[in-house]
Design a protein around this nucleic acid. Structure first.
Lengths: 354, 354
DNA sequence: CCATGAACTGTAAACGTTTACAGAAGCTTC
DNA sequence: GAAGCTTCTGTAAACGTTTACAGTTCATGG
């Protein structure tokens, strides 16, 4: 099929310098060689532009310097920021990142896990599609060193790197309540989620559902309500996807329920953007009538008018930490979970109730 | 360092089935074997869960199914959409994508090219940082099958996949002029660009500068002006980076020049977003006072209020086409450039001059 | 039943590297 | 100058596959 171009190998250097390949190997790996030997090898190297064959190294059990990253959608800022952090950290360690974007499909995810398991990876960072069903079995990762990012408790014994969703939900709800708002909506986001239900509390009980950010943020939201003595009303909860139109649909659904709403937590800026368009269209102003807080990190928050108040997730950091954890795992260390702190960043989408 | 877990090899199957490794290999590759041989191998396979070792395959000169992608910033929607298309097409061919995001730095780019050249790639899609200086030499790719995306004419003899920037700039300017706007600004974007110059026409002359989208869009813009008999005024051109704050700075710069402006071409939604905030802050409304057209494809256009009119670039498609070209190249075919068509998508950011 | 050939299987070399082991220098020390 | 040691170098096996080649089996025809 492909005629690979012949590259310089250790043998060529051996031939050029009149030494054995073993000596070349030793020299290249920093083992002691005589001064004149070193000089001959260096002379040969000078005009031969050798680079080691990664496959051969791997066959001898060496690390390839390639780590995998599986995520649901690379074009969503949430994930692309994590990817950016991961790539940055990988580069620092002279590693490369093998990426698969599964477009929110479990099937693609399974394909990716399979492809990765048979590739020459040193390890894998896995961000599962946020659908609490049908997770791939841990066995399918074939003992690849594994770290889960952005989710909690997906696989027992595997390190997870995630942000403090509970605190985020709590901070956000608490802040809105502090602004005098008591009718706070919640747009939860899952992949492949129906857009017309408010079944989140039941979802809390299904296996694995606790893995996803939405659930933890929702718990924090509930906690804040409880703390403030505000009754929880499922009619203010809408489950929707991650996109702009999902946000718009969710807003229509919420308004259609004819329940008072003066505050809203949305999982991403894009969902909030879709919601805001609908709110505006129906004469509800942001932040006056409805104050909105999103969970986001990206520049896109600024695109909204007004700028969105947000729970900062430090997503780039999450990518960095995930690769760090992975590398500690690869090095054979014990690695536990890493929970990243969150903080509130004020924008124009929240204001005191007048 | 790392104790790689021992996986099932062809030898294990041979042992389990009492055959030689050669027979196993032939069976796995679909070469003819006797029926009873096949049965024995299948029996062994049934409870052995074998997967081929990619490194060993590569050593035998087979393709690894890994293609590289180097791009300036994965968290920018422009590039993440291309990446998404590339990943999608790669998956279709049972390939994986090795990604490097260079954060707009030539140095990181050089590191990535180096890493990739020594990795087991079948080929590479390269989106250079849009700085017309200091491109890595073609030699540094070490005969890796190479496709350039998003740029034009970077390396002679290498296939390029890009969108029709000239047509985009032309369409956009023409449309604004059709709306009765004659004082049309242009925010060009380069990495590492100064934000206070209007040196684009000179830049047109420097080597390699023709590679970048901005230049071609600018040419289209000039062409439209000329066609309509509108004199070109460099005071309406600002060169800036790709970010939100870059757009804001560019807008401040433009307004500071005290030259009339009633239309604007911005290279990305995010730049336009930054610009719009400044315009609004200075009492200029969009689309009434200033109509804006951006070059974009992503959902972010919707986040802006009003929604941005855009030149659709079909970026996902670009990623797909880049990988397709690459695979044709890997298969040994002659591959030429691919120019993708663009089209105008109307939003609320453009309106007739009243 | 033997020769012939077709159809398959096994042996071994090869890909590019590392590394255990044995062998060859060189340096001390007497 | 020989013995003993240290220090380096070369040989060869190994990693998991593919594949040329030789060897085996089996059916076929005489």
């Amino acid at each position: 099929m492909k005629k690979r171009t012949l590259r310089v190998t250790i043998k060529d250097i051996a031939a050029a310098s009149g030494l054995s390949i073993a000596s070349i190997s030793r020299f290249l790996n920093g083992l002691p060689v005589r001064a004149d030997t070193a000089a001959r090898i260096e002379a040969a190297l000078a005009h031969l532009d050798y680079s080691p064959n990664a496959a051969a190294l791997y066959m001898k059990g060496r690390a390839t310097g390639i780590v995998g990253l599986i995520l649901p959608e690379i074009s969503h800022p949430f994930f692309s920021l994590i990817a950016e952090g991961a790539i940055e950290e990988a580069r620092k360690n002279d590693q490369l990142l093998l990426l698969s974007s599964t477009e929110g499909s479990r099937e693609n995810e399974r394909i990716a896990v399979d492809q990765f398991a048979r590739s020459m990876l040193d390890g894998l960072v896995y961000i599962p599609v946020s659908n609490p069903a049908d997770l791939p079995a841990l066995e399918s990762f074939k003992d690849l060193p594994l770290v889960v990012a952005g989710r909690v408790g997906v696989f027992p014994g595997v390190p997870h790197v995630y942000s403090d969703g509970d605190k985020g939900g709590y901070l956000a709800a608490k802040y809105l309540i502090g602004l005098g708002r008591r009718n706070i909506g919640f747009f939860g986001s899952f992949w492949e989620a129906p857009c017309t239900t408010s079944e989140l509390p039941e979802a809390l009980l299904t296996p694995n559902s606790g893995s996803y950010s939405t659930i933890h943020r929702f718990k924090g939201y509930l906690r804040a309500l409880r703390e403030e003595g505000i009754p929880y009303d499922p009619a203010r909860v809408v489950i929707c996807g991650y996109g702009y139109t999902n946000g718009a649909e969710a807003a229509r659904e919420l308004l259609g329920r004819a329940v008072p709403v003066d505050g809203l937590l949305a999982m991403t800026s894009i969902v909030a953007g879709g919601g805001m368009e609908v709110f505006r269209g129906q004469g509800r102003s942001v932040p006056e009538d409805i104050s909105i807080i999103v969970f986001d990190d990206s520049e896109i928050m600024n695109m909204a008018v007004p700028r969105l108040t947000s729970v900062q997730l430090h997503l780039r950091r999450m990518g960095v930490e995930a690769v760090r954890s992975l590398n500690r795992l690869i090095a054979g260390e014990e690695v536990g979970d890493t929970m990243l702190d969150v903080s509130l960043k004020l924008g124009g989408s929240t204001r005191s109730r007048t």
